[in-house]
Design a protein around this nucleic acid. Structure first.
Lengths: 110, 110
DNA sequence: AGTATACATATCGTGACGCGATATATCCAA
DNA sequence: TTGGATATATCGCGTCACGATATGTATACT
């Protein structure tokens, strides 16, 4: 639906946002983005894993393997304290960016 | 101010928008983005030229050299009919994308 | 006269990152 | 038993703003 270029700046914000309420694993995050957006916003789920790894490397999220009977092993990520702070900043930056772009692109005399 | 990743999807939209009112040259567009955004949104002006070339290749804008006495030659771009249509679509897509992301990232229970 | 600054365009290599493809593996339903 | 949903991992690719660099003109200050 939306070009990958458009998505580029906001993927991390999306992932962090969805980990705010509770820990989730990669696949679940991918499906949740699709569900919450009414199918409009979709990611190739395999492409989320490198992003999750990156966020973990930077200490914004922390993952642990969970094995439950009758389920294959899943890696649940939770938001760290740093991640929570980063999320706040990213949300603010996002809203400011949107407002700024809107200011520039609005038709003359609008 | 804003990360280059965030800007990636919306640069073309910005350029096309600023050519809507009247033809402009690259340097002028760069300065206008900065001015209209109150300095918040800036591009390295040299990085705009490849984007303008790309838009011209695709037939969305059309450039012509203008030489005036006492001024170095400047290339003025105007929006083509196709460019005008593309601008409309890009604006709509942008607003829809923003609304969709906002839907997904809003804090639980907000 | 010399020098800095704004104006104006061009090109090249780099880095970031979502995509597409592919691989692997488990569980459940038809 | 075959297909689809679940679940994670990796690799190469394409796109595009950036940074650096280059070139050249006009204006203003010293």
């Amino acid at each position: 639906m939306f070009s990958s270029e458009l998505k580029k700046g906001s993927t991390e914000l999306l992932l962090l946002s969805l980990l705010e309420a509770r820990p989730r694993h990669g696949y679940e995050i991918g499906k949740l983005i699709e569900a919450r957006s009414g199918g409009k916003l979709q990611f190739k789920i395999p492409s989320l894993y490198p992003t999750l790894s990156r966020l973990e490397e930077r200490g914004l999220i922390s993952g642990r393997w969970v094995e439950e009977p009758g389920q294959r092993r899943r890696r649940f990520y939770r938001l760290t304290k740093q991640g929570s702070a980063a999320l706040g900043e990213k949300r603010a930056t996002w809203h400011e960016y949107v407002a700024t772009v809107n200011l520039v692109i609005e038709p003359e005399g609008a």
